[in-house]
Computed example of a mutant assay.
Amino acid sequence: MDFSDFITQCAGKWFSQRTSHTIPPQALEAGTSDFWIDLIEPGDSTLLERCQSVGIAPEQVTCAIRTHWQGQVGTANQPNSGATFSLFVANDDPQQGQFWRWSEDKSDTSVIQGHYHLGEDEALNLSASTDSLTSEERLWFLNPNLRERTSVVTHKAGPRYASFCSEIRMGLK
């Protein structure tokens, strides 16, 4: 599978079950959510705007996605929702490159820049760093409708969080 095929396989509506905790282990937190991953067409106005904001020509973009979610997090079952916009640009090797991710919350204007690599094991590895945190994320498919995801987020102030998600495709829309 190549990177573009991996991203295309991610498109659709998903149900996620997530378990996370701080490292070293403390209280466990669990949650569920529905989320949608939409592929972005090359001429999309948001894509063009985002490319301009980071100095990338739109024809350099390998692919772009919009992800939005809603769900329940933690023992208090607090509702949670949000959306992000991500674009990917390959290096000389199309299996790896850079990505940029923006929150679609108008009050958050920050952009996260990182690197991606799709390994020979067909797992996608994403790593990013900001002034306040670093993150490592790994995604892979057990079959076309079942995806697994792990992540470790380290805040520069000290706390580290690890999570595991099992994600089931619920449909294409």
Rank of each mutant, 00 (worst) to 15 (best):
E49I: 05
R50P: 01
W100H: 09
F164E: 15
W14F: 09
R160G: 02
F88C: 00
A11Y: 08
W140I: 02
H115E: 12
K156H: 15
I168M: 12
L28E: 15
A64V: 02
N80R: 10
L133E: 15
D108S: 02
G12M: 03
G119L: 04
H68I: 02
M170P: 01
W102N: 00
H68F: 13
D105V: 10
P144C: 01
S33Q: 13
Q60L: 03
E148K: 10
Q72N: 09
I37F: 13
N77H: 11
W14N: 12
S135E: 09
N77G: 15
R160P: 01
H117G: 11
I37M: 15
G119E: 12
I40P: 04
I65V: 14
F6I: 08
D92N: 15
F6H: 15
A76C: 00
L48A: 08
K156F: 14
T150V: 11
A76K: 08
N77M: 08
L87A: 01
A83G: 04
S135L: 07
R149H: 10
I56M: 08
Q60G: 02
Q72I: 08
N145T: 13
A30N: 15
N143T: 10
C165I: 06
G114E: 07
T134M: 09
G12C: 00
A11L: 10
L172K: 14
K156G: 08
R18S: 01
I56G: 01
A128G: 05
L126F: 06
E59N: 09
K156D: 11
R160M: 10
W36H: 14
D44M: 01
Q70L: 03
G55T: 02
S86H: 06
A162Y: 12
Q9K: 14
A123Q: 15
A128Y: 02
W36S: 09
I56E: 07
D38C: 07
Q17I: 07
D38E: 14
N77Q: 11
R101W: 05
Q78E: 14
T130K: 06
R66V: 10
R149G: 05
G74A: 08
D38L: 06
F88D: 06
G114Y: 05
L28V: 15
A83P: 04
R160D: 02
K173H: 13
D38N: 12
F99D: 01
L124H: 03
D131E: 03
T154V: 08
S107W: 04
I40V: 15
Q17H: 13
F141H: 00
L124A: 11
F85E: 03
T130G: 04
N80Q: 14
T22I: 07
L124V: 07
D131R: 04
Q96T: 10
F15G: 05
S103V: 00
C51M: 04
E104S: 01
V152L: 13
Q70H: 13
Q70C: 07
E49W: 06
V73P: 08
V61T: 09
D44P: 01
S132C: 09
R149L: 05
W100S: 04
N77R: 10
D108T: 03
R50L: 05
C165Y: 00
D121H: 05
R101V: 10
S103T: 00
I7L: 13
T62H: 11
L87Y: 03
V89C: 12
S110W: 09
K156C: 08
